[in-house]
């Protein structure tokens, strides 16, 4: 019973990684809006989506650990 409870707590803790991804994605798009507001001709949107994908991936590593704890072990 303690093991099952510990798995739930562990999976919940692993989801904290998504806080970092949220901050990262927020920063990326805040910077995109800033730069487009200052210079609407700036060609920065592809870089913003690249940054979005890289920031999102780090958070998903944590989410993946949570899924592994819940469904595999």
């Amino acid at each position: 019973m303690e093991l099952a409870a510990a798995k739930m707590i562990g999976a919940g803790l692993a989801c904290f990684a998504l806080a970092g991804a949220g901050v990262g994605i927020g920063l990326v798009f805040a910077a995109l809006i800033n730069s487009l507001a200052r210079n609407p001709a700036a060609q920065v949107t592809p870089f913003a989506f690249l940054g979005f994908a890289l920031a999102e991936a780090t958070g998903l590593f944590g989410l993946l650990i949570a899924f592994l704890i819940l469904f595999v072990f």
Binding site: E56, A57, L60, F61, L64, F67
Partner: peptide, 14 residues
């Protein structure tokens, strides 16, 4: 490799 794999697994599991 882990970036692509984690994105796919996490997305499909969600």
């Amino acid at each position: 490799s882990i970036r692509l794999f984690a994105n796919m697994v996490a997305g499909h599991t969600t």
